[in-house]
């Protein structure tokens, strides 16, 4: 009984998922994910918590929004660590040559590769996100609405997808492990830590006062520049459920940025695999 192409992709993705879900790197990263996602949610759910600027989260979505900082620190690096050798490892071992000599099209193989690595990262992160919601409920006896939960899950899902795609692209270029991990961690570092510096430099060059939280020009510039970063787009998506935050970026722009961040790296990866020579 032959399988349809979609079923073959799903089965191959599940093989990758099973391999990674119980791998050492997942076991090592799981406590970090637990600390950064449900741990942050637990901390921000404290009724007496006062954040810098005197902010006190008043509803479940606000707590989830602040928890998203933990997602940015842990989920992204987890996705990088899962996918950084997705192609390079098999390229070095010779398994990729065997894989590419099979009759399944390269585009389907790439889809299975992305899907499998994305699932490997997303499932533990999703479990941690559910635990975060449980933590909020336990401490504050409140839950986000279905739409808010859905928005959070989708935002985390696409964030993990972008980092998975970027890592796989890096992995397709690397002929040894250290290059791909250096690229993956470099990308993570740029968008997680250095983006604030990039934003400040652009603001300075544009004559906008840097870091003035009440300056509408600064807020708008920061909002637009965030569209160029996966972490920024992740926050823009979450902010669609935060009526108190207005950064001057239309929802349609956020949706466009989500589409662009998903399609462009996917296209680059597909093209890369199509032309990959060993």
């Amino acid at each position: 009984m032959r399988m349809s192409e979609i079923k073959r992709i799903l089965v191959l993705a599940s093989i990758i998922r099973k391999e990674h879900m119980f791998s050492h790197r997942t076991k090592i990263m799981l406590p970090i994910l637990l600390l950064f996602i449900p741990g942050f949610a637990w901390g921000f759910s404290d009724p007496n918590v006062v954040l810098p600027g005197g902010i006190q989260p008043s509803n479940a979505m606000e707590i989830l929004y602040y928890t998203s900082i933990g997602v940015l620190f842990s989920a992204t690096i987890f996705a990088v660590l899962i996918a950084h050798d997705g192609i390079s490892k098999e390229r070095i071992s010779g398994v990729l040559e065997l894989r590419l000599s099979q009759p399944m099209s390269r585009s389907s193989q790439t889809t299975a590769l992305v899907w499998g690595h994305w699932q490997s990262s997303f499932i533990p992160i999703l479990a941690c996100s559910i635990l975060a919601i449980v933590a909020i409920f336990v401490r504050r006896d409140m839950l986000p609405t279905i739409v808010e939960m859905l928005c959070f899950v989708v935002a985390v899902g696409v964030l993990v997808l972008w980092y998975t795609l970027l890592s796989l692209i890096a992995s397709s270029y690397a002929t040894e492990q250290s290059t791909s991990i250096a690229f993956g961690i470099g990308t993570w570092f740029l968008f997680t830590f250095l983006w604030a510096l990039v934003t400040s430099m652009v603001a300075f060059a544009s004559g906008v006062a840097v870091g003035q939280p009440n300056d509408p020009e600064w807020i708008q510039l920061e909002g637009y520049l965030d569209l160029l970063s996966p972490n920024g787009v992740f926050h823009h998506l979450l902010e669609t459920q935060m009526p108190t935050i207005e950064r001057g970026v239309a929802t349609s722009m956020t949706i466009f940025a989500i589409a662009l961040w998903s399609i462009a790296p996917w296209y680059i990866l597909q093209r890369r695999i199509q032309h990959l020579s060993l």
Binding site: L12, S93, G94, E97, L98, P103
Partner: peptide, 22 residues
């Protein structure tokens, strides 16, 4: 050069490549 490595088994590998080969 195919340096098979990891915790998977020969049966698992052959099954995976059967899927790749339809």
């Amino acid at each position: 050069h195919v340096r098979w490595n990891g915790s998977r088994t020969p049966l698992g590998i052959i099954e995976e490549f059967c899927i790749l080969s339809d």
